[in-house]
Each structure stands twice: as structure tokens, then as C-alpha cells.
């Protein structure tokens, strides 16, 4: 699914770095607040939904090959987090929906999680 469609479904606000990515395909979603789980299970190219806004989220995304992170429940990251995302060219979004609602809406629209995804 195109990132622009996901932004529409989540009614998400763009925080930074969306340039050149709106048309890119997001094959699956990972929702977690536990970065070790994200590192262990997320596939490259996935979108990460999380309630954490620390700079370690950006480092986690970078190391796991994740280009897009969306914060749930309307959370806004600190300036340090946004600056680091700019440096690492990670797209940051924020949605007012909760983690459960975000996952539910995206799943209903045909997106899948990492365990359904075959490379």
C-alpha cells in the first residue's frame, strides 16, 4: 500500500522527511513499544507504529531498515528525535488514534504484519 494512503487511513500528520516517499510501497506494518522486539522481528521496508518517542526509536528504525515511523495517540517527539530523523532520513508521522485502532484500521484495509509476509 502506498504511504500516502496509509497517512489518509490513519489521518496522520507529517512531522518530517516525507519527500520522495509518498508514492513508495509499504508492504507491512509492525506495531510495538518494545524496541528489542522490533529489532528481532521487523522486516526491512515495514512501517513502525509505536508509542515511544525517544531517539532510540530512530536508531532502531535505521538499524532495522525501516524508513517510516508513526507515533500513536498523538504523541510528538522531542526536537532531538526529529533532528536525528532528519539526519538519518527517517520519515516521522503522528496519529491521534491509539495503537489498537491504528493497527485495526490498517489491517482492515488489507495491510499485514511481519508473520504473514513472505519475502
Amino acid at each position: 500500500m502506498k504511504l500516502s494512503r496509509i497517512i489518509q487511513i490513519l489521518d496522520a500528520k507529517i512531522l518530517c522527511n516525507v519527500q520522495g516517499r509518498l508514492d513508495s510501497d509499504i508492504p507491512m506494518i509492525c506495531g510495538s513499544d518494545l524496541m528489542s522486539d522490533v529489532l528481532a522481528f521487523i522486516k526491512s521496508g515495514a512501517l513502525l507504529l509505536t508509542g515511544l518517542t525517544t531517539i532510540q526509536v530512530v536508531y532502531t528504525a535505521e538499524n532495522a531498515g525501516v524508513n517510516v515511523v508513526c507515533f500513536v495517540r498523538g504523541k510528538k517527539p522531542s526536537k532531538e528525535t526529529v533532528d536525528l530523523a532528519n539526519e538519518k532520513k527517517i520519515t516521522l508521522l503522528t496519529t491521534n488514534m491509539s495503537m489498537f485502532e491504528s493497527c485495526g484500521k490498517l489491517y482492515n484495509n488489507g495491510l499485514i504484519g511481519g508473520s504473514d509476509y513472505e519475502n
Partner: peptide, 30 residues
């Protein structure tokens, strides 16, 4: 914690420059 993750990030950048394959870099980086 303001810096935690920074050193791996530097290492990762060097591995990219060394031309190491992305899948190997991903494993090293994680």
C-alpha cells in the same frame, strides 16, 4: 541515553562505505 545508539550508527555508516552487503550490515547493526 541522549547518545545511546550513536556509535552503532557510525559503525553502520562505515560498513556501508566498505561496500558490505545490506543484509550483513543489518545483522551487524542490530
Amino acid at each position: 541515553f541522549k547518545k545511546a545508539g550513536e556509535q552503532t550508527s557510525k559503525l553502520r555508516k562505515n560498513l556501508l562505505r566498505l561496500g558490505i552487503m545490506p543484509e550483513t550490515i543489518r545483522r551487524v547493526a542490530i
